[in-house]
Design a protein around this nucleic acid. Structure first.
Lengths: 137, 137
DNA sequence: CTCCAACTTAAAGTCCACTTGAAGGCAAGC
DNA sequence: GCTTGCCTTCAAGTGGACTTTAAGTTGGAG
């Protein structure tokens, strides 16, 4: 297997070269081997980046992904690492969902129950009672 | 009703003074009356800010809130404005929900189905097949 | 008169995940 | 020897919604 250039790696994992340099910079990838300044990679970087991509798809931040790689004892199995982080993320996502559901409920209420003529009138209703009252009040 | 200072308004609507200045700066609030440089407000600003707060709670960006105020013909009723923007926002929220559900599904699959020992092994599985394969493979 | 709190402005900083730009290096092909 | 094309670094820009900072003004209490 010949070593790959940065753009070849980028192509294979569907990232931009600049993103890969950035990942190296923030310590998500180890410093690449260089010949006369230019980075060369072997296949292991593809696996590393596959994990990064998957983790991003799961909603993890780069910081959390760093935890995944470096935040555990060396002997901690990958599956254990995933489980620990996934549990936290799942509860975050649950909270996020609840927030969104609240927004949807309020939006639907606003759509059906607001009959205000002017924004000022609407604002008065919201300020006084938290609700947008019908014009008849 | 005596006019209020910016910090009094901030207190009543639960914002920081800097946020109110910022809203004025981006045109969400009209320029306030000033006596020797200092802003003074009457109650109408409370209504305006009640709407801004409510709209933010509903997931609208400041830009969308500006639409709510200024993006319609002068005679367009408030209720019509809300409905137009709410419909758009509801579909955005639906997309967001779908994304989150996908993440949750994938996270749960990852938690139950990943039995990898090393991250490298895990990455290989993801890279080759998109899945994190059991150690037996 | 002095001090303090509250106000003013403009500019810069924050977070996140990058991208873009400037300025330059290196190898191959013509 | 020149162009082309890919690479390098470092610094700065992006977006959204503000906050923070610096430097200065105003009004009132003591």
């Amino acid at each position: 297997m010949p070593p790959m250039s940065i753009s070849e790696v980028a192509r294979q994992v569907g990232l931009q070269s600049s993103a890969i340099r950035y990942y190296e910079q923030i310590g998500l990838l180890p410093p690449a081997h260089r010949t006369s300044g230019q980075r060369h990679y072997d296949t292991s970087v593809l696996y590393r980046l596959a994990i990064v991509n998957r983790a991003r798809q799961l909603g993890f931040t780069l910081d959390e992904i760093r935890q995944l790689f470096f935040g555990f004892g060396k002997v901690t199995p990958a599956s254990t690492r995933w489980r620990a982080l996934s549990e936290k993320k799942l509860s975050e996502l649950n909270n996020l969902m609840d927030g969104i559901k609240t927004m949807q409920r309020l939006l639907r209420r606003m759509m059906t129950r607001c009959h205000c003529e002017t924004m000022d009138q609407c604002g008065r209703g919201i300020f006084r009672s938290g609700k947008c009252l019908p014009i008849t009040n």
